[in-house]
Design a protein around this nucleic acid. Sequence first.
DNA 1: CTGAAAGCGCTAACAC
DNA 2: GTGTTAGCGCTTTCAG
Lengths: 342, 342
Amino acid sequence: MAVTIQQIADLAGVSRGTVDRALNNRGRIRPEVAERIKGIAKELGYQPNMAAKALSTANHALQIGVIIQYAETPFMKAVLEGTEFAKEEVERFGGHVFVECIHGGDVKKLLKTMKDFREAGVKGIALVPTDDELLKKTINEFVEKDRISIITINSDLEDTKRLCFIGQDSYASGRVAGGLMGEIIPGDGKVMILSGSQENVATMERTRGFLDELEHHYSRIKVLEPRYAYDDDWVAGKLLKEQLEETPDLAGIYITAQGESGVCDTLKKYRLEKKIKVIAHDYEGENRENLKKGIINFILRQNSYVQGYESVMELFHTLCGNPTRQGEFWHTDIVIKTRCNL
Amino acid sequence: MAVTIQQIADLAGVSRGTVDRALNNRGRIRPEVAERIKGIAKELGYQPNMAAKALSTANHALQIGVIIQYAETPFMKAVLEGTEFAKEEVERFGGHVFVECIHGGDVKKLLKTMKDFREAGVKGIALVPTDDELLKKTINEFVEKDRISIITINSDLEDTKRLCFIGQDSYASGRVAGGLMGEIIPGDGKVMILSGSQENVATMERTRGFLDELEHHYSRIKVLEPRYAYDDDWVAGKLLKEQLEETPDLAGIYITAQGESGVCDTLKKYRLEKKIKVIAHDYEGENRENLKKGIINFILRQNSYVQGYESVMELFHTLCGNPTRQGEFWHTDIVIKTRCNL
DNA sequence: CTGAAAGCGCTAACAC
DNA sequence: GTGTTAGCGCTTTCAG
């Protein structure tokens, strides 16, 4: 049998209520008593019973909020599937999960939703952030003043008091892309990098990883100057066309951002889809089709579903007294998809 | 607020106890009353509260057993890590998880442990099975007579009453291996398949998937007759040597089973480690080193950790009244590992 | 066959 | 500051 607060109370010669106050830093207790109780709990290896905790607090304290920006994108839709699944699980424990979708990036709406959640008594929030000073401040305020736990999904805000970040290691995934490219194109082939914009941290990191890997292990491959398509299919197609005119013997394309369909269409038009190797990110939407058809050779998946699922479950565990399970950074697997493991 | 048995009881004009008997088929209740109660529960969309269920039954009904055969192998060690993590989570809910390791394959000991678990009051068992008639019978008996839920890990016993199977789709992973090999060796290269034994279903399925993929999409690649190393490094090395004498221009090796180190050592001896591409399974033990060094080009990972973790968590959910989350087959992701995502 | 009531471990409101 | 107590929703005796 696991140790209970009653046992601690008996040993300390106090009541359950006092132990509860001590162990949960609720105040209204003499510091030296609190210390003594904590000592006994530690000695006994006390672990709170999550079922009991959930049962007794579910109706007020087990409320979790999720805020997804860019909810219209295929990628975030997969995140949402994960949160929905987690929602079901949490609600089976008597908790509540509120999911708010935001179209595109809209920090104002994000902040508004955070405040609404706080009013509603939410004790943990998982959100897809954007790099914004006011948002950072608000996060810190929520954590410190309101004791609301916050998790960043997909992109991080490192210099905040958030509980943790769940997402992919962009640099590492870029390196994986580089390693794959190195293997599948000729040793002295030419490679184009088609990126999003220089403001986007994630895609810049991917690019950096890609370059590092090729430089260190496939140094004879020639990597062309990155071009930026600003996540647009049409621009991506156009940039590729221009590149092909300059570099008719192009061997591979690494797409770090959106715009994959534009690339694939252009390749098809020029009948180059079997000749030029393509590596892209995000196993969602049209990418799946293009992978199946063999136009894209590899897709590096972010495991977005897992991000959605784990962010909610991590908050759930935290609220039930189970400390963080993975540390500050929770990097999801870099899953490589080929035509064969669709 | 979620619906509770009390609400159902009120509506049906009976007591909580009666509702409990009806909803959990405990008998000692008039059939027509039971039906009526079930009807009301359904209408109301009743979902039992897992926290309450866990709290009230933890000490007798939330006992889970895990039996791992071949526990000495690196692969199963990873499975064990997953079960240990799950164990902690379950025990935080007041449950109990007993883990029994078996050295090598030992059905007698497996059966003995199952019976011990049953005596101890265990209500769910996750086990790594071997294909054995008595084991199958015992599983069915446990499920039907003792109402103990059973999950098979890693390899399946399809024609039994087990709750589900958690493991990898061997055929699919073979196909992925084929697709990768097709990309990284020359279009008309020669490939060797180094397998375990013809009795091992999983490795035969991998081989079948590998062959299918190459035949359909890389038909000019020449696949040599499979050789069987019986999971032995020395034999594997020897078979490779023989193959190299017959086929000095070998371009790739697909290893479906154990014996990878033997292959890598031989390749190093002949200074062929950069020339011949190697694809293997199981990201554990020495394979990691050999992948890092570039001797192995790709490892297809089984996600053994996940298998261990999810098997226990699935039993936990089942015992807490949450129905199966994934269906009869729960195929874990086929994770491709390269030097870059170690 | 059915109802009543105790209890699982923890929290929170209320006394003192 | 500290103790007491009434729940949270479900299971499980024990009466009837």
